[in-house]
Write a protein that binds this DNA or RNA. Structure first.
Length: 212
DNA sequence: ATGACGATTTACT
DNA sequence: GTAAATCGTCATA
């Protein structure tokens, strides 16, 4: 081996560190596209490439849980370090998974809306029951709640530091050319005024694994 | 204590 | 396309 070779040349083994998360939410929403979300359960990996995200811009964003500085036990993880997970329960039956961005104390985050399943697909299908109602692989993780079902994520996984957590983190994958990224208004918002229309959703245009 | 409301998904007309 | 499912969270009192 050459004496000046890098010690960890394999980008697949590199986990996102604090500096990789520490940026504004809109930048992180784009940055995360194409990267690998990894969940480890009983030593087995389930993972997929992130293909769809949404940015939530904090206190000024009426559609954001931390709008107007709201700080409750549920939202508390949004005020933590970039790279912290924020998982919440909604509609009495679903969970959504976010990655905290920005500076410490700045409650901004990126909602992960869809991934392209790569590892542990069989286990993901099992998590969905494996019956006739289980969606095909294309729709398995297409949508924030479906993604959480397939990765077995719930409120217990909110507030984890993904730069060190053993069972939930993001790994580097080849960067995505900006040309392949599309944008749109965020999905499912109620009346959030001007924030309803802003194009804060990002996705890989050619992906068959999008929520829509 | 109470009431309104979801960053959704699924089934059904 | 429309509607039901289902309950934690938050604002109001």
């Amino acid at each position: 081996m050459p004496p000046d070779a890098p010690l960890s040349p394999d980008p697949r083994a590199a986990r996102f560190a604090r500096a990789d998360y520490a940026m504004d939410a809109l930048s992180l929403a784009r940055r995360l596209l194409g990267q690998r979300l990894v969940r480890v359960i009983n030593g087995r990996r389930r993972s997929g490439l992130i293909v769809e995200t949404e940015a939530y811009l904090g206190e000024r964003d009426r559609a954001c849980h931390s709008f107007a500085g709201r700080r409750t036990p549920r939202v508390e993880p949004m005020y933590a370090h970039a790279g912290t997970s924020y998982v919440y329960f909604t509609y009495g039956m679903h969970h959504c998974f976010n990655v905290v961005a920005g500076e410490l104390g700045e409650p901004v985050a990126v909602l992960i809306r869809a991934i392209e399943p790569v590892e542990g697909v069989r286990a993901m299908l099992a998590s969905r029951g494996g019956g006739a109602r289980t969606p095909g692989v294309e729709k398995l993780c297409a949508g924030p709640a479906r993604l959480c079902m397939s990765l077995s994520l719930d409120r217990r996984h909110s507030g984890l530091d993904m730069t060190s957590a053993p069972d939930l983190f993001i790994e580097h994958a080849p960067p995505v050319p900006p040309r392949r990224i599309g944008s749109s208004a965020r999905i499912g918002l109620g009346n959030a005024g001007v924030w309803t229309r802003r194009r804060l959703r990002f996705f890989l245009k050619a992906s068959p694994y999008l929520s829509r």
